[in-house]
Design a protein around this nucleic acid. Structure first.
Length: 572
DNA sequence: ATTGTGCATGTTAAT
DNA sequence: TTAACATGCACAATG
């Protein structure tokens, strides 16, 4: 049976029933296709490539030839695949009284209220705001010359591959999708044990483990401006001189890495919080080449997990998020699973057993034999393990990130603000993440205090670094459910856990945070223009205070207004 | 007695 | 109510 897969190279999810159709690929306001498995949203350009427009006005699907039912020109980009076959525009669907969005089963992976943890902000419909607003989503793609489906050993053969011009990496809106031939899939269902066993035995997946220490220098921190809506307006941003300010533009950021190809991270289900941010692990070309043997390799981030006490214990079993294990690891049909070999950047190989336990008519996926690895890397509960994959070759990368520092909550808040990490964009919340860990792991804190390698998390942040040797600004920005985390630390930490929830409520937008920061009036800032942003650069750190505005009289004198907490009136 | 293995159960979040 | 998952626990294997 012909099988359609998610077009996200890092997902490879198979459409239910083998058909890419309504219910699996959702259209979001006509601008995007959301894979039910990975939550990937394609921008409208990609979508338009799928349904191309005929001169006569009607459209047909590139792949199945189904025609737009009504030929409504105005509904360009607004299609839905009909169960009965064919295509119909959303306007006509609405006109017929059939609800579209609201009746669609929300992608399981997008429906979580943990929105601040997802790569893209969601609307109330669970759809990316970027998508709904028609903004091109910052996507980068794997080029066809580097993505070799045949190297994905645990798949018979991916049905879809991405055909991208390498020169266009980072400018997804200009790229076009290309569907490879559709091949009958050797369906590795759980019921087909024989075929699975064969494929499993044949497909000894090689994993690579990358471990890099990202030294975060206090004098060199990169903060990111979050709001794409910010235009050339002059914005008061408090930017200590030692801080580097970069516009929030992953594509540009990636574009500075000519040899590094980075694919878009998939979203995920319940474990969506375990998804890697869209600023993926980046390693140097040299490191990547050492791992993959190919300097043109691409890193496809997969998922990550914060290690629980059980994971880090002596049992040597790492519980894997089910959705992630099924989506990204080789399919296994037997509880015994299959071995996975892991090597680190130095070539050291680790051998794990990837298996599952039957559990309530479901499965619990575990990685067994992780004790030597954990001990070697001195990982413990609260540390994060990340999984990525290198294409071509399908090698999996396993990175680690130590838990965050031991700073006090208050210190963290201040630090977060000072570092510019209180931002509107949920993409950027590394310090908030820190807050959670710091405040939510009382027992954990004790252990870190006794361990030098954990005592300074910013220095022990075991993650990926970019070519310049800087830690990725967003690495570690994934927020884990607070309850999940606090569960590991016992009742004593519950109060602190609540505190951290309160702290999360303090999460401000970038502009709001700016409102709370004010410079001494006597200090004259240097105005620095970067891209379309103007920044006031102060030698002195900002003062954290009440909402403050500044006015300038005709005489040129400047007034400072502070808003009353109670009456909300402004006072000079 | 200790450690490893496999499954069961409790907790939590999602539906 | 269901699903995911962290962890408990009984039993087996081993020293």
């Amino acid at each position: 049976m012909a099988t359609k897969r998610c077009m996200n190279a890092g997902c490879m999810a198979v459409a239910p029933g083998g058909e890419w159709r309504k219910g699996w690929a959702l259209r979001a306001g006509g601008f995007a296709i959301l894979c039910d498995k990975c939550g990937l949203a394609y921008d409208q350009h990609v979508f338009c490539d799928i349904f191309h427009q005929k001169e006569s006005g009607w459209r047909e699907c590139f792949y199945c030839g189904k025609r737009l039912h009504c030929g409504c020109i105005a509904s360009r980009n607004s299609f839905d695949l009909l169960d009965s076959g064919g295509v119909q525009c959303l306007n006509c669907i609405k006109a017929s009284g059939v609800q579209f969005i609201s009746t669609q089963p929300m992608p399981k992976l997008l429906a979580s209220p943990q929105m601040r943890q997802r790569p893209f902000p969601l609307s109330s419909r669970g759809l990316s705001e970027e998508v709904l607003q028609g903004r091109a989503i910052d996507m980068t793609w794997i080029s066809s010359d580097t993505y070799d489906p045949s190297q994905v050993k645990w798949e018979e053969k991916p049905i879809l591959s991405l055909n991208r011009n390498p020169s266009l990496v980072g400018t997804s809106s200009q790229n076009a999708l290309d569907l490879k031939d559709i091949t009958p899939e050797n369906n590795s269902s759980n019921n087909n044990n024989n075929s699975n066993n064969n494929s499993e035995s044949l497909a000894e997946t090689s994993l690579s483990m990358g471990l890099g220490l990202a030294n975060t220098s206090d004098t060199e921190k990169t903060i990111m401006l979050s709001s794409p809506e910010l235009t050339a307006q002059k914005v008061r941003h408090f930017v200590p001189k030692q801080l580097k300010v970069m516009p929030h533009d992953a594509a540009k950021d990636l574009g500075s890495l000519p040899h590094m190809r980075v694919a878009r991270p998939p979203a995920d289900g319940r474990g969506r919080n375990q998804l890697l941010p869209r600023y993926w692990p980046r390693i140097t070309d040299q490191e990547l080449q050492q791992i993959s043997g190919d300097s043109n390799s691409t890193i496809v981030p997969l998922f990550e997990k914060v290690m629980s006490a059980s994971d880090a214990g002596r049992i040597g079993r790492l519980v894997l998020p089910k959705a992630c294990a099924e989506a990204y690891f080789p399919p296994i049909s037997q509880p015994e699973g299959r071995p996975l070999t892991i090597q680190d950047t130095k070539g050291k190989e680790w051998h794990f057993q990837f298996r599952f336990w039957p559990n309530n008519n479901s499965r619990m996926y575990v990685l067994e034999g992780v004790t030597p690895c954990i001990q070697s890397l001195q990982l413990q509960a609260g540390d994060t393990v990340t999984f990525s994959r290198i294409e071509p070759g399908g090698k999996l990368l396993m990175g680690f990130r130590k838990a965050t520092n031991t700073a006090t909550l208050a210190d963290s808040q201040i630090s977060a603000i000072a570092n510019g990490t209180f931002m509107a964009d949920p993409l950027f919340a590394p310090q908030v993440d820190n807050l959670q860990i710091v405040s939510g792991y009382s027992g954990f804190l004790h252990s870190i205090k006794g361990r030098p390698d954990h005592a300074n998390s910013s220095d022990s942040d075991v993650g990926w670094i970019n070519k310049a040797g800087r830690p990725l600004p967003n690495e570690g920005s994934l927020l884990q459910p607070l309850q999940k985390r606090s569960r590991n630390i016992g009742l004593k930490s519950r109060r602190l856990s609540m505190d951290s929830e309160d702290a999360l409520e303090l999460k401000l937008t970038w502009e709001e945070a700016q409102d709370l920061l004010r410079p001494p009036l006597t200090v004259k800032p240097n105005v620095v223009r970067i891209e379309d942003y103007e920044f006031e650069e102060y030698d002195e750190p900002p003062i954290f205070g009440k909402r403050t505005i500044f006015t300038v009289r005709a005489s040129g004198d400047q007034d400072q207004w502070i808003q009353c907490d109670e009456c909300f009136r402004w006072r000079r």
